[in-house]
Amino acid sequence: MSELTGILTLVPAALAIYFLFRPGRGWLERWRRWLRLSDRVLSEDALKHLYHCEYEQREATVQSLSGALGTPVEKVAGLVQRIEAGELATSEGASLRLTPKGREYALRIIRAHRLWERYLAEETGLKEPDWHKRAEHQEHRLSSSEADALAARMGNPPFDPHGDPIPTQQGQLPPRRGQPLTSLAVGERARIAHLEDEPEAVYAQLVAEGLHPLMVVQLTHLSAERICFWAEGEEHLLAPIVAANVSVVPLPREQPVEESLETLAILEPGEQATVVGLSPNCRGLERRRLMDLGLLPGTVVAAEMRSPVGDPTAFRIRGALIALRGEQAANIRISSRRQVA
């Protein structure tokens, strides 16, 4: 019996050794690579911070860097020395500035970050809260040729899902647009241009409100305590400090209202309506699927029946009976809701 016990212990031991020391992909090798990487990650994050400060015309200092990276000032000082030694940034008094070489480097990281966010939004089932976190991880791992291949595959998208421009291959970015939501006057209409995805807790609150770039908002109330506005048929209420993380582009007053405020979700069996369009919130595979089904501007859709448990609802779309879930129907904007004749 001892031979068998011997074999039973030897096999796992051999496997463990193999996985630890496997050339190139072994756990030990990965651990060493990870240690080296974490140093690089820190300096790349620092360059990104310097670039964001420059783009938003704020001053970057060792203190602001320490705050952004969540690292003690003493450690950041060493980091800044390393960055300066690599000729990526220079300091003038207290403020830090990127060199052209450093700017190019930072733009490459930002490009990888925003492309990856776009990829996650369009081609995976991950939801808003995961995009930023995963892109923060991936931006340091994507080489520029991989980023270019990714961009080409997605048709060189100009913007990420938060509404931020993606730097081009040559590192070009448009000048900054938009103003904080809190700067609008009561009654003024504007289009959301950008949702700031940091800090995470604030972004989560904006996502929970159902806000997304391209949404048209109209301000109804503004005070020091709260800000109220209409968007897609719902009234939203935010603390001004939260609303300041939403950038908007004001719309001219005379422009007629083209945004429909009703969605397919409010249709009761026996009613019909005309599709106006799909919400920008609905992306990738889901969007293509709904279009495949014929949910296009001008299509007449009638609600026929509801599942005995309340969801989904079956709609008559171009002659076919299609069941859609409540949250899908909420992404389809409609107008002229009426009883079926």
């Binding site: 996650l120 089932g125 991950l126 990738g284 889901e286 859609l324 899908q328």
Partner: peptide
Amino acid sequence: LLKGEASAFSLELPP
């Protein structure tokens, strides 16, 4: 495990 896989519901109720 499957969080990242793409997902789009559709259910046709044929005649």
